[in-house]
């Protein structure tokens, strides 16, 4: 329950945090709900924490130039209850309400979750399916990483050593677009054993992303292509599932073997697709 001793710096601005990051073995502390549990168990022992939780510039949800911009420091709870999100990006609100518990949602942030890139976290599936951009800032300035390029592996991202996520930029879906997130929770931790996010525009353009299934969240591009513009039926869902899971290293653990998780991925893909068609 007691972390190893560390230094602490409260960053007043993103630039200050970035400067502090370059000073060595340090970690960014946002909501702390991924980091502190690991530190309490001493699974992780950074020498320094840089607290960005007070940086107002990282918070809030706004509409800007055809995008919904979610500050990286916005909590799951704020996303779940945001009118803007509910109206224009409803599956973000639905998913946010499924993360952890109310206490976690009150303080855990979307940026922290994405940077942590837990293979069973919910947000990765959502940002992938929404084709979001992850805006990051480092000493080299601001850049935007496409969600599809962001999750590079098991707990790993395209985030540079001294970079911080500043915002998530989501293109506002065309009117009439349906979106849905379906989650089969691990009963103890309530992380996703399988999470499937799907989005389908009125012209049938479809995007699908999974979390929990493999080492990192991924877009099921082949399945998307097969379904786009095509009607959704039991048969097309079945073949989409085949395409989605082909070549995927499906994880197995205490709660779901690889075989069962694969089965669940198919079932939850069908649920999500049926909800958006």
């Amino acid at each position: 329950m007691i972390p190893v001793a560390f230094d602490y710096q409260k960053a007043g601005s993103v630039d200050e945090a970035i400067a502090a990051l370059s000073s060595g073995d340090s970690k960014i502390l946002a909501g702390g709900h991924s980091l502190l549990p690991a530190m309490k168990l001493r699974l992780n022992q950074p020498a320094k924490l840089i607290d960005i939780s007070r940086i107002e510039a990282l918070k809030g949800i706004r509409e800007e130039g055809g995008e919904i911009v979610i500050g990286a420091g916005t909590t799951h709870g704020d996303i779940a209850t945001s009118e803007l999100i509910r109206n224009k990006l409803s599956f973000f609100a639905e998913a946010a309400a499924l993360i952890g518990d109310v206490q976690v949602r009150n303080y855990g942030t979307i940026g922290g979750s994405l940077a942590h890139a837990d293979p069973a976290a919910d947000w990765p599936a959502l940002v992938l399916a929404a084709d979001a951009g992850i805006e990051v800032k480092g000493s080299g300035g601001l850049r935007k990483i496409a969600a599809t390029d962001f999750f590079t592996g098991f707990f790993s991202t395209a985030l540079g050593e001294n970079e911080i996520i500043t915002a998530i930029r989501v293109p506002i879906p065309a009117a009439g677009t349906k979106m849905n997130y379906q989650k089969f929770s691990q009963p103890a931790s309530r992380f996703a054993i399988v999470g499937c996010a799907a989005m389908r525009s009125p012209d049938g353009k479809t995007r699908i992303a999974f979390t929990g299934v493999s080492e990192n969240a991924f877009r099921a591009t082949a399945a998307e292509n097969a379904l786009s513009g095509q009607p959704v039926s039991d048969a097309s869902i079945g073949s989409a599932a085949d395409l989605a899971l082909a070549g995927v290293n499906v994880l197995g653990d205490h709660f779901a073997s690889s075989e069962y998780r694969q089965h669940l991925a198919r079932v939850y893909l069908a649920k999500a697709l049926n909800a958006v068609s």
Binding site: Y8, L29, G32, H33, D51, Q103, V104
Partner: peptide
């Protein structure tokens, strides 16, 4: 808030 998941300094 879960006060075990927040530092006093926070």
């Amino acid at each position: 808030a879960k006060s075990c998941t927040m530092l006093a300094v926070q």
